[in-house]
């Protein structure tokens, strides 16, 4: 039972990551490989502010979201106007750099030892220090993120984003400033990833650099591919299915030194097969109805 609740909390947190990546990759066609970096920036910012400086947890969470969004903005400034490959490599590099910062900026992040004793979330003086209580909170958070991004998807703004994804030149020919459309998607997506990171930090109350690796980005990528690019509900469901599957692989009794890379191997092959045979995902995005 405890494990089930724990898994559900992680699914809500990773689900927010899936919604964030789906906004950037699935809806806007922005190939962001630095998801784990934005997630980590949100987690470390909120953890350090609340733990070392006594900032109230809600406020520190918002600061984490803001900093992630800001980094997304700075990264986007020179790269979003270039072809997609640039953004991919720059964000991938960002992933490595942030990890180097978490690992090497020891006075602040305590390096590989990680940050213990991160304060729990509290709402109106009410401490969310048990997993079921936190689950309720993180569920509300994913619901808000979901509704927010769905609203974007169904709005005229979302329609232009899809246009940019399909044919950027065409969207420009219709007089849309595609640069800012993409920038907004990138900034909102980065902020959402930061939110997921903050939630993770205050739920676990301990973080270290190993939680923010490229592998996580890849895992969420697989989830949104399975759920269908641009399909938010599909992305969240697929995240849940993949996480249960991953737990299953963990219980299969293999030594961890083999189990982790084996998982990576299986998921990697799965992603190659899926991209070739079902490039829009298992449950492709539905054409929105505009009434």
């Amino acid at each position: 039972m405890e494990i089930a609740v724990h898994l559900l909390v992680l699914i809500t947190i990773y689900g927010i990551l899936a919604i964030s990546l789906n906004l950037m990759v699935g809806m806007a066609g922005l190939f962001n490989l630095g998801l784990a970096a934005f997630y980590g920036i949100g987690a470390y910012t909120s953890a350090i502010l609340s733990r070392n400086f006594g900032v109230p947890v809600g406020l520190s969470l918002l600061a984490g979201v803001a900093l992630s969004a800001l980094i997304g903005f700075i990264i986007g400034l020179p790269t979003v106007k270039l072809v997609g490959d640039y953004l991919a490599v720059v964000t991938m590099g960002l992933g490595e750099i942030t990890r180097a910062v978490f690992k090497n900026w020891v006075p602040v992040t305590r390096g590989p030892m990680g940050l213990p004793g991160i304060p729990h979330m509290s709402l109106f003086g009410f401490k969310l220090d048990t997993a079921p209580l936190f689950l309720a909170f993180s569920f509300v958070m994913i619901a808000i993120s979901f509704i927010f991004v769905e609203r974007i998807r169904l709005s005229p703004f979302g329609r232009v984003l899809r246009g940019v994804r399909e044919d950027e030149m065409g969207a420009q020919a219709l007089g849309k400033n595609t640069y800012w459309y993409k920038m907004i998607a990138l900034v909102v997506g980065s902020g959402l990833a930061g939110l997921a990171g903050g939630l993770f930090a205050h739920y676990m109350s301990f973080i270290d650099p190993s939680s923010f690796v490229m592998w996580l980005t890849f895992f969420i990528f697989l989830a949104i591919m399975m759920g269908g690019l641009g399909n938010n509900l599909g992305a969240v469901v697929a995240t849940g299915v993949l996480m249960v599957l991953r737990e299953g692989l963990r219980f299969a009794g293999l030594p961890p030194a083999v189990a982790a890379p084996l998982q990576q191997l299986i998921f990697g092959i799965l992603l190659i097969i899926m991209t070739i045979f079902a490039p829009r995902g298992l449950i492709p995005e539905q054409k929105p109805r505009y009434d």
Binding site: G29, F218, Q264, I269, L271, T275
Partner: peptide, 19 residues
């Protein structure tokens, strides 16, 4: 296929090789 697909498989290939 769209560029996004090739980039995705390339990432997947690198993960498979690393693993």
């Amino acid at each position: 296929a769209p560029k996004l697909s090739t980039l995705t498989t390339a990432i997947a290939v690198s993960f498979v090789l690393d693993a």
